[in-house]
């Protein structure tokens, strides 16, 4: 019992040390840090501006109003933001695996996946995270319930981004150089999470809630924030945790495959 508590405490202290080092690294270039984060914030605000122009022409589109799309942007950018600040390597797993950078993590006594994920902090993502809260302050529901729902939305979004990208990144264990494909999936996924899910019809909509599960993010403003839709929420939570579990399992399998090294191209 106490050893278990010790272990958890050790991991926690280790994560804190990683984040501290990441943050210190980012601060080494204070100016570019604020510039990059600020640029991302501006970028997102310009999209909000676009949506304002759009909704000034079409006030309601498939039941969505400007406020819903703004909340969608807040959730997508904010969720992406915290995940990329704290676990900035989740989108680069394919790259790390296929370029042989795993060895360093493998020779150290910490959980490999966690160590990989926490070893990088995305600087621009800090701007995304800030943007999320800015929009919440602007158009969010400023009650305790509204706050908690927004936090829950951010959590789900970030975990879904991470789960998906871990699963996709693990392809590299089996197929070598898959950075290009992984990057493409990542970008497309991010793009898809920033458009109201209800504009999509037919097959596209089905895909959005199955193969490319961006729909579980892009329906959050309606199915979680506006009013809780239990069926959707249960599906979203299970998909998120399912992807996370699948990602961790695949990574463990991949490591075993990497270690037994039967099919990996030799890189001496």
């Amino acid at each position: 019992m106490s050893t278990e508590a010790n272990r958890v405490g050790g991991i926690w202290r280790f994560l804190l040390a990683c984040w501290k080092a990441n943050f210190a690294s980012a601060l080494e270039y204070r100016l570019s840090f604020f510039l990059l984060a600020g640029m991302m914030l501006l970028n997102n605000l310009i999209w909000v501006f676009f949506w304002q122009l759009f909704f000034s022409r079409f006030p309601v589109v498939q039941g969505w109003e400007l406020r819903d799309v703004m909340i969608l942007w807040a959730l997508s950018a904010g969720g992406f933001g915290w995940a990329s600040v704290l676990f900035g390597n989740y989108g680069r797993i394919a790259n790390i695996v296929s370029s042989g950078q795993l060895d360093v993590y493998l020779s150290q006594p910490k959980p490999v996946l966690l160590h990989v994920l926490a070893s990088r902090m995305s600087v621009t993502a800090a701007g995304d995270f800030l943007f999320g809260w800015l929009i919440f302050a602007w158009v969010g529901d400023h009650t305790i319930r509204g706050f908690l729902l927004f936090v829950a939305g951010l959590l789900l979004t970030g975990l879904l981004f991470m789960g998906l990208m871990i699963v996709v990144g693990c392809i590299a264990f089996w197929y070598g150089n898959s950075e290009g494909i992984a990057g493409q999936v990542f970008n497309s996924f991010i793009t898809l999470t920033t458009y109201p899910s209800d504009i999509f019809r037919g097959v596209a909509r089905t895909l959005l809630f199955t193969v490319v599960p961006a729909g579980f993010i892009s329906y959050l403003p309606i199915g979680l924030i506006r009013s809780i839709d239990p069926a959707f929420l249960i599906a979203a939570v299970s998909v998120t945790f399912g992807l996370m579990a699948a990602g961790c399992t695949l990574f463990a399998l991949g490591l075993r495959r990497y270690a037994s090294g039967n099919a990996i191209t030799v890189r001496q």
Partner: peptide, 23 residues
């Protein structure tokens, strides 16, 4: 050829991190 030191940080920060990695 592969450094374990964090490129943009002073060495003392890497030492600190290593002390956490090795508990």
């Amino acid at each position: 050829q592969k450094s374990q030191l964090w490129y943009h940080l002073p060495p003392i920060d890497t030492f600190e991190l290593i002390s956490r990695v090795y508990e």
